[in-house]
């Protein structure tokens, strides 16, 4: 086989890896939609906020330091201590649980039994609030995120595959960070599927998604369920924030990764956890292979963003509910 063939395989593999990264973002959307019927516009901002909080806690940054300094004329930025990554992650999870509690208390509680569009609009407001609040709390500078996950081309894979395509082939390039992200995603999805299908709380989550009032009538606490599901989505947002933030640093653009999740959701379905993964993989491979075979050689490149949506739309023509979505039949 020629080197070109193996480079095609390399692009395919990297497409899978990119797909996993998209899936991590899509998972958060799916969880909340599945449990509450809300399309959470704020999911990307939650990833940003979680990552900012993680870096802030890890580096001992004083929250709201700009505000404190401007108000009281002092100059404090850091507490002077640094936390181990695992401790900082644990504390960030607690912050995201608190966030979920506050969202339920201040936003969702007042919107029980409202139309989905009202809840969607509420999450838009939440996203804008969180953007500003995150900046105010942790500053808008770009922060280096380092929780000890290695990144860069995996040398072992490169060395052990370099013989495949002759002198012009340098071995498969696979980013170690992407490999770790894939392993994390597998564990996360397995746990979430098991939780959703086989635990009492998981069944309650699905009951709430089907019908708020019916769930309430059988004694399920809607408010508790919402806190739980937003907490889990917050945790997923943290994982996505760590993986994406390790590549680019933690900055506002992290919130835009939600854009990469939309075609994944359209393709995989808004209610399926495995759908988010499969959808992500199809989108990742599809956009990378299209760019490799057609986009770069014939269209000037930069085709990935729009091609992901084209691919999702093509699937929608044949399965409007997405590959794994629930087919909803409403009687009129």
């Amino acid at each position: 086989m020629s080197a070109e063939f193996y480079y095609g395989v390399e692009v395919f593999l990297n497409g899978l890896m990119a797909g996993v990264m998209y899936s991590l973002v899509a998972l958060g959307f799916v969880l909340i939609f599945k449990a509450s019927g809300i399309f959470n516009y704020a999911q990307g901002v939650m990833a940003l906020f979680a990552a900012m909080t993680l870096v802030g806690l890890q580096t001992g940054q004083v929250p709201f330091s700009h505000l404190i300094n401007a108000t009281f004329g002092v100059h404090i930025t850091h507490f002077g201590w640094e936390l181990p990554a695992l401790v900082a992650i644990f504390l960030t999870v607690l912050v995201m649980i608190l966030f979920a509690f506050l969202v339920e208390r201040l936003v969702l509680k007042h919107l029980v039994n409202q139309e989905p569009i009202i809840l969607f609009m509420a999450t838009i407001g939440l996203a804008y609030f969180m953007e500003g609040f995150g900046d105010l709390m942790w500053g808008s500078d770009i922060k280096k995120l380092d929780v000890g996950i290695p990144q860069g081309g995996n040398v072992w894979v490169e060395n052990h595959t370099a013989f495949l395509g002759g002198d012009d082939f340098y071995g498969f390039y696979l980013d170690t960070l992407d490999i770790i992200a894939a392993l994390v995603a597998i564990v996360l999805v397995t746990v979430l599927v098991l939780f959703s299908q086989y635990t009492k709380t998981g069944r309650a989550l699905r009951a709430v998604a089907d019908d708020h009032q019916a769930a309430l009538s059988v004694g399920i606490s809607l408010r508790t369920i919402w806190v739980i599901v937003w907490s889990i989505a917050g945790f997923v947002a943290l994982v996505a924030g760590i993986m994406w933030g390790s590549k680019s640093g933690v900055q506002f653009s992290l919130s835009l990764i939600a854009l990469k999740a939309l075609p994944v959701l359209m393709l995989g379905g808004f209610t399926s956890i495995p759908g988010a993964i499969v959808g992500g993989l199809i989108i990742g491979v599809g956009e990378k292979m299209f760019d490799f075979l057609i986009g770069s050689p014939y269209l000037g490149g930069a085709t990935e963003n729009w091609f992901a949506y084209v691919l999702a739309l093509l699937f929608l023509v044949f399965r409007p509910q997405g590959l794994f979505g629930e087919k909803i039949i409403e009687r009129v």
């Binding site: 480079y7 390399e10 692009v11 990297n14 890896m17 990119a18 990264m21 390039y173 994406w244 590549k247 680019s248 653009s253 992290l254 835009l256 990764i257 990469k260 990378k288 760019d291 490799f292 986009g295 770069s296 000037g300 490149g301 930069a302 990935e304 963003n305």
Partner: peptide, 18 residues
Amino acid sequence: SLLAVDHPGQEQKSQWLQ
């Protein structure tokens, strides 16, 4: 050679593989 990156540029795997 020219390699375009779409806004915002969070994902550039294709360009750097090239």
